[in-house]
Design a protein around this nucleic acid. Structure first.
Lengths: 185, 185
DNA sequence: GTCTATATTTGGATAGAC
DNA sequence: GTCTATCCAAATATAGAC
């Protein structure tokens, strides 16, 4: 083994994510990423030989793992609506009650490489699938469930945008509150 | 009068808007803006002495005017639901059926100057106000109307994000279809 | 693994000719 | 009003010492 890393991988991903989600792919500069992580630019290139592109890919991959945690209640909760409510609580935490933007939104603008957009797309599909499955378990028909799951994602992403634009977090909180009924009733 | 402009102001605003809405404020480079407009960078600076910042401000101001056209049916239609449906048709046109992003989303990311974000916020508030007024005219209570108008904006913005991320325009089309009921029932 | 130093390109912006 | 030419700062990325 060589020299130990001064910053843990998962900590790096989390700090990179802060910059990417707030500024988007194009808007996230190496200087900002470097400062957020607490490593010089050259050190970041040692961790991510393919540069910014590799950092963005790593952030999304790490986020995929985090989503497992956020989505787990959808599967494990005895009552589906309770599971959705628990997912909503975890989302509130992850998005800091609507103060933070979503990478699905900001990392899919025109400046991003195609495979990063594709990775974000897969992440979104995983999320929709998980919500649709939960709806089915609540007795909703398969076709209808998929539509409701997409509607849920629409409300989450839309609420994040509107909360930011109107500078009013309550929009997000309210959208989260509607999710259990939306997915199970 | 001096020399005539080779490109009309409104044409310039529209082409600048294409770049800003797709790439966000930070992601919109002078080269890209210049190429889209068909004028050299220096020529753009002659039109907009305050540079990129002035271009963004002009785009939002021009968009405010365009919104008058989009929102007019809310006021003029004898039946409110019909008016909302007509607004939705105009939105479908403006957002190219969900293929284009919204400046309210992309121009309010971290890289944008504060007054640009503020201008976007005013634009959003105008929009919400117009939809809320329409809801009131349809018999909805004032308090409830404001909530529904915000919900409508949430669905529009969210649908644009999700349509882009999932690469599926139907999400946007469907969200537009729900607006008349959402605002008047 | 992290750093300083540097190469190279692109970014935003200005000067001055036409 | 538009252009070419140019300036300077910031961007991404690499080289090599420690």
């Amino acid at each position: 083994m060589g020299r130990a890393a001064s910053v843990e991988d998962e900590v790096i991903y989390a700090r990179l994510a802060e910059v990417f989600r707030a500024n988007g792919y194009a808007g996230a500069s190496l200087s900002a990423l470097s400062e957020a992580v607490g490593l010089q630019r050259a050190s970041l290139y040692h961790r991510f030989p393919s540069g910014k592109h590799g950092m963005a890919a790593a952030v999304l991959t790490s986020m995929e793992a985090n989503f497992d945690t956020i989505l787990r209640p959808l599967v494990t909760a005895p009552d589906v609506a309770d599971g959705v409510a628990e997912m909503a609580r975890r989302l509130a935490l992850g998005y800091r009650d609507g103060r933070l933007a979503c990478v699905l939104d900001t990392m899919t603008l025109a400046g991003a490489p195609d495979d990063i957009k594709a990775q974000a797309g897969r992440l979104a599909r995983t999320w929709v699938r998980a919500m649709a499955d939960a709806a089915v378990r609540a007795g909703v028909g398969e076709e209808d469930a998929l539509g409701r799951a997409r509607a849920a994602l629409v409300r989450i992403e839309g609420a994040l945008v509107v909360a930011r634009v109107l500078d009013d977090r309550s929009v997000f909180t309210q959208a989260l509150g509607e999710l259990p009924d939306l997915l199970t009733r």
